[in-house]
Design a binder for these strands. Structure first.
Length: 536
RNA sequence: GGGCCUGUAGCUCAAUGGCAGAGCAGCUGACUCUUAAUCAGCGGGUUGAAGGUUCAAGUCCUUCCAGGCUCACCA
């Protein structure tokens, strides 16, 4: 976790941290790693005394290039059009396609404790004329840009290519236009039918002054221009951009050679892999970001992203594993250590920072947060499956005193997460189910256990969990059976496994007639039945 | 083909160049009302391979092998 603190120690003076995103469609959980890293860097800078501004931009004048995300009849009309100028495909009140997707992403920030000082939308910036100086510089130095593309990225543009994209006055597309001349005030552009494969231009051409929102810079130049416009000093970016000869290299060179400014410090970060594979909404892997957030509350999600160094890929496989419970356990361990409670095993390096930066509220009282009672996630998931269990009451008992408002909030958050986990992610072994018919495993019961079950069947009836629990111990004792063996017998008879939840409450939650019938069936079970199953 | 990352116990990961560790899982045991809790204990390794530097290498250098991501059209 030292990475953020080390970065903070390396810089001097006021800092501007920036990131921006093209709202081209639905995002997945992995997309949140960037914003979380951004936020942690900001917090680290501030806590080491640097005056810091956090900016988050939406590159919503970029062209639509994802056909799959448009309705079929919208493809011809909107492919290549700036995202900000496409109507929302979903009728939920957003002004545009870009606003819809950007807003659903940004809405997650607040929950995660990420609070940029300012959001900016490029569709708002261009019309103000703030970008005009950069557009002019890019046009004046078009030959430098062409040379740099060839040198840095081996991309060969025609000699007449100019680094500005005019928004076609006729069809409104920006992805299909090319500028071939610049006279110092106006550019000559063509909206070509086949400039790119994914969109078709309308054939318009003409001279236009490319200022005040009538044109935009290509993405790499826009990026570098943002650094100058906002005075950005630190900007992390995903490894897809940070690759050698890739976008970041191009933009760095543009910053130096066209806008004559050192690019910001880069913090390249790796992605989040689910089950060893890249997340992809289109391939059906990886829930959309707003979906998995239901199973992983903010502070645990922050922990997941913060703990490894940014340049390490995160392997996370929540499907059918205990990855989610372990994430909670790890967070709780950090809290215990921070609160000075004893913890098992060794602590990760820099654990105190991890816990502090994992908290949603940057101004939280870290000591107080660490001290609050947090129920074990797996224990909760377990209790939720016990028929009739009063989980809040049980947790109050476990804590030994009433839950505070904050503790009740955490409990509710964890209960909700555990429900989602049980429904969508938990492995079979974490789920328990009362078997409809006598489980095969009941054949493993020995004579003493069958005797116990038979006796208990005589006592069966409607009673409370507490009463059942007492009865179980009493019956076991009167038959001379060890309590452990007695409970095992019940679990085998009802769940088909040697262990389970508090048996008394399990039985109390079932229909009394069914309980009596099952007890008798299990008592009558012949040990030879289990021969094939290899019973002990 | 270029770039980045990874390879250490079954799984997830640690280890300023200085005796290879932890959590979880597993196994054994204890427990007369927390029974998937709690407590005690145990096993588990040619650190992907081969060279090199060093008194000393999981760690640094070289070369391989394997896996993953990413770029090479646009943003």
């Amino acid at each position: 976790m030292e990475w953020a603190d080390e970065l903070a120690a390396r810089v001097s003076g006021p800092q501007v941290v920036n990131d921006s995103k093209t709202p081209s469609g639905t995002v997945h959980v992995g997309s949140l790693r960037g914003p979380v890293i951004l936020d942690v860097i900001t917090r680290a800078l501030r806590s080491s005394g640097h005056e810091t501004t956090l900016l988050y931009g939406v590159d919503d004048l970029d062209a639509m290039d994802a056909q799959a995300l448009l309705t079929p009849d919208a493809v011809e009309r909107y492919m290549g059009v700036p995202l900000a100028h496409i109507p929302d495909q979903v009728e939920d009140g957003h002004a545009s396609y870009a606003r819809h997707h950007a807003q659903t992403f940004i809405d997650l920030f607040a929950d995660l404790g990420i609070r940029p000082d300012r959001y900016y939308w490029m569709s708002d910036i261009y019309p103000t004329g703030a970008m005009d100086a950069y557009i002019r510089a890019a046009l004046d130095r078009a030959h430098v840009v062409r040379d740099l593309y060839r040198r840095v990225s081996n991309v060969q543009h025609p000699d007449t290519w100019h680094p500005v994209l005019v928004i076609c006055e006729t069809c409104g597309k920006v992805g299909t236009t090319i500028v071939t001349k610049w006279d110092g005030e106006r550019v000559f552009y063509e909206c070509r039918k086949d400039l790119v494969q994914w969109a078709h231009g309308c054939g318009t051409s003409g001279w236009v002054a490319p200022f005040g929102g009538r044109a935009k810079l290509p993405w790499n130049l826009e990026w570098a221009a943002q650094w100058s416009l906002f005075g950005v000093t630190i900007e992390p970016c995903g490894k897809d951009l940070a690759t050698a000869g890739g976008s970041r290299d191009r933009s760095d060179a543009i910053a130096r050679e066209v806008f004559e400014r050192e690019p910001p410090i880069n913090v390249p970060y790796e992605f989040l892999n689910i089950g060893g594979r890249k997340m992809s909404t289109s391939k059906g892997r990886g829930a959309a970001a707003h979906r998995i957030v239901d199973a992983i509350p903010p502070e645990q999600l922050r922990t997941l992203f913060i703990r490894p160094r940014p340049n390490h890929a995160i392997e996370f496989d929540p499907e059918g594993t205990d990855a989610i419970p372990r994430l909670f356990d790890e967070f709780d361990k950090l809290a215990d250590a921070t609160a000075g409670r004893p913890v098992k095993g060794e602590l990760p390096p820099g654990y105190a920072s991890v816990f502090r930066y994992a908290l949603r509220d940057p101004a939280a009282d870290v000591e107080a947060e660490a001290a609050v009672f947090r129920p074990s996630f797996s224990h909760l998931a377990f209790l939720l499956q016990v028929p009739g269990a009063d989980v809040p009451a049980l947790m109050t008992a476990e804590k030994g005193s009433g839950l505070t408002v904050r503790e009740r909030e955490i409990l509710d958050e964890r209960i909700a997460a555990a429900r989602v986990w049980l429904d969508d992610y938990a492995p079979e072994r974490a789920r328990m189910r009362v078997q409809e018919t006598l489980p095969e495993a009941a054949g493993e019961l020995d004579a003493a256990q069958r005797m116990f079950l038979a006796t208990l069947a005589e006592e069966a009836g409607a009673r409370t969990g507490d009463a059942w629990q007492t009865q179980i111990f009493a019956t076991a004792a009167s038959g001379g059976l060890a309590a452990g063996k007695a409970f095992q017998a019940l679990y085998l008879a009802f769940l088909g496994r040697p262990n389970g939840p508090r048996a008394g409450w399990l039985l109390a939650g079932l229909e009394p007639g069914f309980v009596a019938r099952r007890l008798r069936e299990a008592a009558a079970a012949d040990a030879t039945m289990a021969g094939a199953g290899g019973a002990a």
